[in-house]
Amino acid sequence: MTDDSRTRRFERLALPHLDAAYNLARWLMRNDHDAEDAVQDAYLRAFNYFGSFQGGNFRAWMLMIVRRCCYDGLARNRPTELVSVEDIDALAAGAEPLSDASRVDDPERALLRRADAALVNELIAELPPPFREVLVLRELHDCAYREIAEIAAIPVGTVMSRLARARKLLQRGMKRRLKKDDGNGL
């Protein structure tokens, strides 16, 4: 294959996923500039490793590389945002049991129904990256757990527990914020 036809083939496969790549990068990097850099880096890397793509789920392969580039970018420029994986999973497994926040009564439900888009976006952005990414991949990219496992390089069981934990953190954040607003407003 000539260089040119290889490039065209890559572009035909990869460019339709540009929005997905950018969305994931934008959520992980949290600003336009770094997200663009990470996506460009990812497309170059993907092009270089294109020969090693074995077929199968191209989107997952592409998003795996995008995620990798984002983490590299964070490690380079904002290492404090990266919590070690051990800490994260300890947090997810122990510390607080999952049960308390998932058990809800009706007044709490009414409270959560007042959460607006701005609050949702703000709270997702505040989640530590390992929780943020599984939530974004699930809810915004509609990824199956198996795909998320492939993209984030973790076992499916870990996807399950991180996602449950992400939702719980979100829920708790909403409760806290909405109650605080009530306290200030009334």
Binding site: D19, A21, Y22, E36, A117, V120, N121, I124, V136
Partner: peptide, 8 residues
């Protein structure tokens, strides 16, 4: 509610 960012 969550924003879907489109590539510029």
């Amino acid at each position: 509610g969550a924003q879907r960012f489109a590539a510029p």
